[in-house]
Each structure stands twice: as structure tokens, then as C-alpha cells.
Amino acid sequence: MELQEKVVKLVSEATKMDAANINLNTSFVDDLNLDSLDMVELMMKMEDEFGVEIPEDETENLKSVGDVVNYLKAKSH
């Protein structure tokens, strides 16, 4: 599975939103209505799934699905 597809699937499972409505431009706050606790939980799931550690000050910059995909791509290089 592509990285993007995996991230979308995870976001879809965590938010119970249809994956078809989630794309790179989807904003966690504006489109998915996530609050700060939702974000902490989502980042934990990302860390578990991709085996990375996302520092707290980095998560503040991850505002959309695309931000997360780019961040994870950069981490893997």
C-alpha cells in the first residue's frame, strides 16, 4: 500500500469518516473537526503504524493529511 493510502486509511479509521472523502488537502481541524486530544491520539496511531517518533513541536505543523504524508516521507529518507 502507498504511504498516502495508508495515512488516509488510518485517519479514516480514527475519525470514522469515509476514506473517499479524505485527500491530501483534508485539514484536521477545518474539515475533520479534530480537537487537541483527537490530534494527540491520531499522532500516536501514526507513530505506531509507521514506527517513527513524532516530536510534540513537530505535530503543531501537521495541519493536513498532506503535511503528515510529506513529514513521513522526509523521515524515511
Binding site: L37, V40, E41, M44, E47, D48
Partner: peptide
């Protein structure tokens, strides 16, 4: 500790 859910206490 890093995997304890923020929803545990609430």
C-alpha cells in the same frame, strides 16, 4: 507512557 491515550482520563 507515550502510548497512553489522551482519552484515558476523560
Amino acid at each position: 507512557a507515550r502510548r497512553v491515550s489522551p482519552f484515558f482520563i476523560p
